[in-house]
C-alpha cells in the first residue's frame, strides 16, 4: 500500500505532463491542418461542391478540436490545483499546527478565565453562605 501510493502519484503526474503535451500538440496540429485546407492544394476526384463542403466540415471539426484542447487545458489546470491542494501535506501540517496552537492558546485563556472566575465565585460564595446561614431568613 505504501509502495503503491508513490507509484500512483508518479503515474498521475506523468499523465498530467502527457495531457499538457497532447493538448498543445493537438492545438498546433489542428491549426496546421486548417491552414493546409485553406491553401487547398489537394486534388481529389470528388465533385467540387462536395469537396468544399467536406473542407468546411473538416475545418469546423478541427476548430472544435482546438477549443476542446483549450478547455482540456483549463481542466488540467484545475486538476493540478486540486492535486496540489489535496496532496500538499506540508501546508496542511502547517495549518494543523497553527490551528492547534490557536486552540491551545484559546484553551489556556478559557482555563485561566474559568479559574479566576471560580476563585472569585468561591470567595463570594463563602461570604454569601456565611451571611445566609447566620441570617434569620432561610
Amino acid at each position: 500500500m505504501h509502495r503503491n501510493l508513490p507509484q500512483n502519484k508518479e503515474a498521475l503526474l506523468k499523465s498530467y505532463t502527457t495531457r499538457l503535451k497532447e493538448d498543445v500538440k493537438s492545438m498546433l496540429e489542428n491549426f496546421e491542418e486548417i491552414i493546409k485546407l485553406a491553401k487547398g492544394e489537394n486534388d481529389s476526384q470528388l465533385n467540387r461542391m462536395t469537396q468544399i463542403e467536406q473542407d468546411t466540415y473538416e475545418m469546423q471539426v478541427r476548430a472544435a478540436n482546438i477549443v476542446r484542447a483549450g478547455e482540456s487545458l483549463m481542466k488540467l489546470v484545475s486538476d493540478i490545483k486540486q492535486y496540489l491542494i489535496l496532496n500538499d501535506f506540508p501546508s496542511v501540517n502547517e495549518a494543523i499546527t497553527q490551528n492547534s496552537k490557536l486552540f491551545r492558546t484559546k484553551q489556556q485563556e478559557c482555563d485561566q478565565k474559568l479559574m479566576s472566575l471560580r476563585d472569585d465565585i468561591a470567595a463570594d460564595l463563602y461570604d454569601l453562605e456565611d451571611e445566609y446561614f447566620t441570617s434569620i431568613y432561610k
Binding site: I34, A38, G40, T56, Q60
Partner: peptide
C-alpha cells in the same frame, strides 16, 4: 467556399 469554411471555423 474556403472563405466560408474558415469563417465557420473561426
Amino acid at each position: 467556399g474556403r472563405k466560408k469554411a474558415l469563417g465557420a471555423a473561426g
